[in-house]
Design a protein around this nucleic acid. Structure first.
Lengths: 117, 117
DNA sequence: ACAACGTTTCCATATTTATGGAATTATGGA
DNA sequence: TCCATAATTCCATAAATATGGAAACGTTGT
């Protein structure tokens, strides 16, 4: 995953409403949530929410599908995995960081991050 | 770690120059780096770099000490660990995310995140 | 005390981001 | 076809962020 891509994702998550929306989508799991449900849950006007969901979408953190008149937003776990992987490999000391269970077994530099599908 | 704290950290990292600066500091390790070295490495005018380092500092991602006329910036691994932990626990599906080796052993929901000092 | 150096603060400017009402675009049901 | 619903796009406005020259600040050597 490229740094620019990561920055987009971090930008997207670095905003209260969007982080809340994304967390809600993660919690909701594969069935996802519609904007109206989110709008209600997060108490955000539809256009504002729509704006934020678009940001998340452009950052690749969520996917959308349509079901009748409703849209279904679903968290993209692969993207999130990429972000966490990047941070772990590029922004953590060899073993001074990373939450305990999470030590990439001494791989050099960004080997793993570069192996994109 | 609180959501607001996390947002500050994500904001700080979600900017090209700052992410580059932080990565350089992580790479540099405990000895850290001075602004002039960073300014040179990243090709940023001193005031601009200073502004970004202040952002990182306010987000708690770096610490500063003085050595003579130079300041020494050092990455704060604990803070970074907190960020990665939060993302892993709040923004990942039960096991649908997190980079392979990094699975918090099935803890329920946000138990660990809530255990704040 | 003075000069040089490393760094920050001040400040004006340019750019980007967030907000939400009004209008608009899909979709499905009667 | 007409209406109601779900969501987005349009657009004006407000607010936050980034940039970098000039000036100021602390520290060290002379």
């Amino acid at each position: 995953m490229e740094a620019q891509q990561i920055i987009k994702a971090l930008e997207a998550l670095a905003q209260e409403s969007r982080l809340a929306a994304f967390r809600a989508l993660v919690k909701a799991g594969p069935p996802g949530l519609t904007p109206s449900v989110l709008s209600d849950k997060l108490d955000l006007p539809a256009p504002t929410l729509s704006f934020h969901l678009a940001q998340l979408r452009h950052a690749g953190l969520v996917n959308v599908t349509r079901d009748g008149r409703s849209l279904i937003y679903v968290a993209n776990y692969d993207a999130m995995s990429g972000v966490i992987g990047f941070l772990t490999e590029n922004c953590c000391a060899d073993a001074g960081c990373a939450p305990a269970s999470c030590r990439p077994s001494k791989e050099k530099n960004e080997t793993r991050a570069r192996r994109r599908a």
